[in-house]
Design a protein around this nucleic acid. Structure first.
Lengths: 344, 344
DNA sequence: TATTCACCCGATAACGATTGCGTAAAAAAA
DNA sequence: TTTTTTTACGCAATCGTTATCGGGTGAATA
């Protein structure tokens, strides 16, 4: 079952012209007479002619499509980013091919191979949490594939990057907890190796230092898989609460983990914020409807997608390689709700 | 900045062969000698040769990509469906181009034009809530584009369809409310014209009839835009509660509306389920974390995406058109939680 | 009258890969 | 030895489009 469309050749034979003439007429070349143009345009319009993008791609050596790799699209933060990406790509005539790594390094490598073989013009990627070796990305980058990193970026590759100000976001959240009277603030973070976790950890530590709260390394824990796997999160939480000096607040380092921790507390009948306060990174639209309404650090995901795409298209459409790369930093916003209410 | 890959021609000149020989060697043709094959394969391997999919598409008149149109990807139900779609498409070597209609008819038409111009091999679509005229779809279908509908299907177009058993889902939810002692059960539904709303409404009515609860048309309301726009939902809810005989339970017809209604109740300080019970269609992963934990009708979204994709690929890859179309119906599952607890 | 331009258009090659057909050389059969 | 067959490869067309080059016609200029 195939779906056949009208071609320039069809128009040419129908009107007794050559394909070159038809092509030029449609592109409004000055070397075609006004009558011929009219004739061709009318026929094309009538038969709903659309240039074959595949033929164009082959000729122009560009596919007008960009690849996107994220860990998971069923995650508010990333689906909002994708909305931002699509909003720009769509306007500029690019289509977007989305792949999910599901936080697996292996899957990320496969995804990239696949995208490269689909001859994408450029790549937008937020690397998986498992990824510590970046050779697959370096190799593509060296071959000249335009790449823009967003959110989880790779320091060692020199290109545009769009990130959240993780450090300030974490700082503000931690300060907020300190000011509300919490003393033992735990930090459950994503993979220790990740760029994101490092920023968030530094903001957390700086806030404690600035307020003369001692840093207790036992209150800092990491989930290598970012809490995609609830069992992993549960293990880390159990370890955290098995300690003698228990935390009175938890600051969570990702959307999935924030929800997972909330689930953990509820299952253990821990009252929030009376027994334990909770603040976390989250872009859920419904954080205000949760029990309790959650204090979150919200990230400008849509803007991030937009900005990353704009930068990528700039590189793709640049006549000559530009070595002047941007490191664009977007602010995170603290939204205060019940889950971090002042200790009585 | 362009990203150049090795071609068959490069291999041919490097080895002093013709492109035909190289092509045949790579496809393991019997008319190429064993040594030549070895030579070519080794060179291709070493230089990481990948056939150019665009050139193949042009030759084979197929793009190995399928278009997907949904209203919104930042919606658990649809992002889970997309996960299902990708899981199959990926394995079969197809890539997926996703477009969002944002529940706008106009945008849906633009999306389809765009996808058609990108020469997709097939289309998976859940039509927008605004869409009542299906000419844009009929036209593509008549031109031979393989289409499979999912969730929000179009009756008048004869092709494969994958739907949820909306009627039974709604029936079970309504019966559950009746059995828990609720008497005046309102139904807030999506656009009245939609296939989905009709199924859900019929299940709702049947449940009332089977239990001798009178049907009160004043308790049935529709949101044309499906609650994407909170103001619209608010207007309908205000109208519902402005009545003398107020409802004691609400059954909501979509994910967005369920969340919107919960927000509405909370903002009016209405207690759930004491003042008003709530049950709704929702695929949110976190319905159990809400206040109160929400009784939902959960749909097998991932399965739906898988099934629809399998059917589409069957049509695309069929040698000859098959007129025997499936109407695949998936069950919805009622998950009981606090928001519909028995009246004291 | 001869030359020079515009003007308008067609033929051809190219993008990368596949494929039917043709053919030289080697091997097998007569 | 001659003829036939087999082996192993190259040529060229094709998919749809555009860029380059070249050419014919008629009018304006020398």
């Amino acid at each position: 079952m195939r779906f056949e469309a009208i071609t320039i050749k069809d128009i040419a034979t129908a009107l007794g012209l050559s394909t070159s003439t038809v092509s030029r007429a449609l592109r409004d070349s000055h070397e075609i007479s006004v009558e011929t143009k009219k004739l061709v345009r009318a026929y094309a319009e009538e038969h709903n002619y659309r240039p074959n993008p595949i033929a164009l791609s082959l000729k122009e050596k560009r596919s007008r499509s960009i690849g996107v790799v994220v860990c998971e699209i069923a995650n508010s933060f990333f689906s909002q980013i994708i909305n931002g990406i699509e909003s720009i790509a769509y306007d500029r005539g690019y289509n977007v091919i989305i792949s999910q790594s599901h936080e697996s390094y292996k899957r990320e490598v496969i995804d990239l191979n696949y995208l490269a073989s689909r001859s994408i013009d450029g790549l937008l990627i937020s690397v998986s949490m498992e990824t510590t070796n970046f050779d697959h990305l370096k190799s593509l980058h060296n071959k000249g594939l335009p790449i823009v990193f967003f959110d989880r970026v790779v320091d060692e590759i020199d290109t545009h990057k769009v990130i959240i100000d993780n450090s300030t976001g974490a700082y503000n959240a931690t300060v907020h907890l300190i000011e509300n009277g919490f003393k033992r603030i735990a930090n459950i973070n994503i993979s220790e190796h990740s760029f994101i976790a490092q920023g968030r950890l530094s903001g957390y530590k700086k806030a404690l230092q600035d307020h003369n709260v001692p840093i207790d390394e036992k209150l800092i824990r990491y989930c290598e898989h970012g809490g995609q796997d609830y069992a992993e999160l549960e293990r880390e939480m159990d370890a955290l609460f098995a300690q003698k000096k228990k935390p009175d607040a938890v600051f969570a380092g990702s959307d999935t983990m924030t929800m997972g921790i909330l689930r953990y507390f509820k299952s253990r009948k821990m009252r929030i914020p009376e027994d334990i306060a909770l603040v976390g990174f989250s872009n859920s639209e419904n954080a205000d409807l949760l029990q309790p309404a959650l204090t979150v650090i919200k990230q400008p995901a849509f803007e991030m997608g937009k900005k990353a795409t704009e930068l990528l298209l700039k590189v793709i459409e640049a006549k000559r390689p530009d070595k002047d790369f941007e490191n664009f930093v977007l602010p995170a916003e603290l939204v205060v709700r019940e889950s971090s209410e002042r200790k009585k």
